[in-house]
Design a protein around this nucleic acid. Structure first.
Lengths: 143, 143
DNA sequence: CTATCATGTGAAGTGCACTTTAAGTCAAGC
DNA sequence: GCTTGACTTAAAGTGCACTTCACATGATAG
């Protein structure tokens, strides 16, 4: 029997069969032939799926992968599609990095607190301000 | 009329009233007194809520804030609670940073592709390997 | 006195990326 | 012939952090 069953595609790509059907439904992978209701995949689908996996790892949502696949004029080469999408995604990634850095700052800042009761603690009062805890560690340059 | 209405608390904290009720339901803020079915808040709730906001900004989930509030012995000071929670959260933040860096790498790596047809493109084949596109830009040190 | 607004409740809805379930079909091995 | 396992479908469920809805009631302004 020629072609790959959905189970074989799942095994080779690391996806679950349910995810493959879902991707098909979302239009991310072409509808395969059927042998008596069963899907039979051309091996090229493996390449499609690894491109999808790459895009997902790079942070693209399913909707964005749809755009990558179908949101351009048919003769737009993959290189151009990727560049268009990747450009704005890089901006988002940079923003997310900043959020994480702020989280780091808040976490370490909060760790300096020495308060024994919540009522004493002013960590939460003025955000970004360097002095938070009443009796405690440091105070300086607070606006 | 003494105390704050839920609308006033919402206005002062930037939360929506629905979020305040939700936090109450989740046990993040103490149940306020009622005046004839209406909630009446002591102003100290503002401090509670800004601590919650801080924790949320620092990346704690609602469940983690619950732990922060109620997951320790009653005499554990806030400083110790925060340090315990922040330590593991900092590890997660660092991991998330690495994920973002990998995303950046994948995005810029894919932007080097010059392929005109998806079939030519091997970006997706061997991940982390530096040569991806057949006719194109560069190839070097690929394991 | 009445219209309007804020508030009360429980239940259901939202978005995302799938997974799980229920109920049925098909091919192969014993 | 029968069981087992892989497969089929549509529909519902998951997790998170809320929001929205429908409907009831209380407070306030004119």
């Amino acid at each position: 029997m020629q072609g790959l069953s959905i189970g074989e595609v799942a095994a080779q790509t690391g996806l679950q069969t349910s995810a493959i059907r879902y991707y098909e439904q979302m239009g991310l992978i072409p509808k395969p032939q059927r042998h008596n209701t069963r899907r039979r995949y051309d091996p090229s689908v493996l390449q499609w799926i690894s491109l999808i996996n790459l895009a997902r790892k790079a942070g693209f949502s399913i909707a964005e992968v749809q755009t990558l696949m179908h949101g351009f004029e048919a003769d737009t080469p993959p290189s151009e599609r990727w560049q268009t999408m990747a450009h704005s995604k890089l901006v988002q990634v940079a923003q997310q990095m900043q959020v994480l850095q702020q989280m780091q700052a808040l976490l370490t800042y909060g760790m300096q607190c020495q308060c024994l009761r919540l009522e004493d603690c002013r960590i939460s009062d003025e955000q970004g301000c360097n002095e938070g805890c009443s009796g405690a560690t440091q105070s300086e340059g607070c606006e």
